[in-house]
């Protein structure tokens, strides 16, 4: 390759490096004015507690340790997952496995 193109390439490389630098450069942003910030946030509302209730219900289902272990080895899932499926199927290990097999 001749010198000229190489030089050009070099120049191009430094330029793009500089561009890259600019991209990642952190620039403090200018402030904006917000008039009624409080009302905005208040309007957004909070999430309902429905999901939490379901969690509580599930956690009350009785499950057997050996069932959890069986599901873990047979289906190669984590303990959390095994417990959850078992709870969702009211502690019935055959049902839980069937659900997993059909998933």
């Amino acid at each position: 390759m001749d010198n000229e193109t190489q030089e050009k390439k070099k120049k191009h490389e430094t330029e793009s490096a500089a561009d890259l630098e600019r991209v990642t450069d952190y620039a403090e942003e200018k402030e904006i004015n917000v008039t009624d910030f409080g009302t905005v946030l208040a309007n957004l509302g909070q999430k309902s507690n429905k999901a939490k209730e379901k969690e509580r219900e599930l956690s009350q289902v009785k499950i057997l340790k050996e069932d959890v272990e069986l599901i873990m080895t047979e289906m190669e899932v984590t303990k959390d997952k095994a417990e959850r499926v078992l709870r969702e199927n009211k502690g019935n290990v055959v049902e839980a496995l069937t659900v997993l097999v059909n998933s």
Partner: peptide
Amino acid sequence: SRLLVMLRALL
């Protein structure tokens, strides 16, 4: 030798 995982894959 994971029979149920085999079955799941088959289905």
